[in-house]
Amino acid sequence: MIAAGFGFREGAGVESLADALQAARAGGPAPEVIATLPAKAGHDALRALADRLALPLRAVAPDGRPTLTTSPAALAAHGTGSVAEAAALAAAGPGARLIGPRAISSDRMATCAIAVGETL
């Protein structure tokens, strides 16, 4: 499973999310699922991106695995160093690994990280 995990500000638009995804992929594998925290899963722009890419959207809770980056704001608000990285890892399943640290959209409204599960 290849999962794209997202963290974003409330005002993020679909282009911010798409920009973060493009930066996170950097020519790497295409995601099979989009994921974020349950509290963010209903965001219109994220649903629009999932529809645009014809990918399922999963709401996942961080499962305690360490992230490559740490945002003090994410740690305080969500108990994880990176919402994007934690969501990607949780959605990709046990044994998943990040292909790199989260990428930040050029407008700094969204982050995205890609995780690859063991099935590959």
Results as ranks from 00 to 15, higher is better:
A45Q: 11
A59D: 05
E85F: 00
R52W: 10
F6Q: 01
V60T: 03
A87L: 02
A113C: 02
A4L: 09
E15F: 01
S105R: 02
A30E: 15
A12R: 01
T70S: 12
G11F: 01
A73V: 15
A88M: 01
A76I: 08
R25W: 06
I104T: 14
A35S: 03
R97T: 14
R58H: 13
L57R: 04
I2Q: 01
P101L: 00
L89H: 01
L17G: 07
L46R: 05
I114N: 12
L120Q: 12
T119H: 15
A41P: 06
A92E: 00
E85I: 00
S71R: 13
A30Y: 04
V83M: 02
R58S: 08
R25T: 02
A115N: 09
A110R: 05
R65W: 11
L46G: 03
E32I: 01
G28N: 10
A76S: 11
A12L: 02
A113S: 04
G95S: 03
A103S: 08
L75P: 02
A48W: 07
K40H: 14
A20W: 07
A18K: 11
A115Y: 00
K40W: 10
R102L: 02
P94H: 07
T69D: 06
R102K: 15
A30L: 13
A90C: 04
A115G: 10
G28S: 11
P101Q: 13
G64S: 08
